[in-house]
Design a protein around this nucleic acid. Structure first.
Length: 140
DNA sequence: GCCAACGTTGGC
DNA sequence: GCCAACGTTGGC
């Protein structure tokens, strides 16, 4: 299983909104960046991802799961863009802020720090474990 | 609201 | 194929 991070502006689409979609989840459409697209194409059913709120609170607030592998983006008529569907699994009990990530030497290599603008990012197993611990996430 | 980072576009 | 101009993202 691989790990990822999905960025979203909570004013536009928050983790609460994803929870409200239930088990069916949400098409992660609208991504118009090749690297982000390629990451989504690499995702497998059941892969896990952090849900990160940009702009407002800048923190990892939830755990999501890939519930449909890459397919054409329904908001794109050119056939260039793909997306996966994700659904909410668990909230992060104690959201992990960007400031904490930056302050932690073990997380200095995270794409969240090094590729600030990338909206869909890979997360290593180690990074995943550290953030779950910081966020007091049980069972991941 | 500003601005740095960086991806994309288009002229040559 | 290079690179300047431009647009967008997102932290501050």
């Amino acid at each position: 299983m691989q790990f990822w991070l999905f960025k979203s502006e909570p004013d536009v689409f928050s983790f609460e909104d994803l929870k409200a979609k239930g088990a069916a989840g949400q098409e992660w459409d609208g991504v118009r960046n090749y690297l982000a697209r390629n990451h989504m194409r690499a995702m497998k059913l059941g892969d896990r991802g952090f849900f990160y709120h940009s702009n407002a609170t800048k923190d990892v607030v939830g755990i999501a799961e890939v519930c449909a592998e890459a397919h054409p983006d329904s908001t794109d008529s050119t056939g260039t863009w793909s997306c996966v569907d994700i659904r909410a699994l668990e909230p992060v009990p104690r959201p992990v802020t960007l400031a904490e990530v930056k302050a932690n030497p073990q997380l200095s290599g995270m794409a969240l720090v090094t590729s600030m603008r990338l909206s869909v990012q890979p997360v290593t197993q180690e990074e995943w474990s550290i953030i779950c611990r910081l966020g007091e996430v049980e069972g991941f």
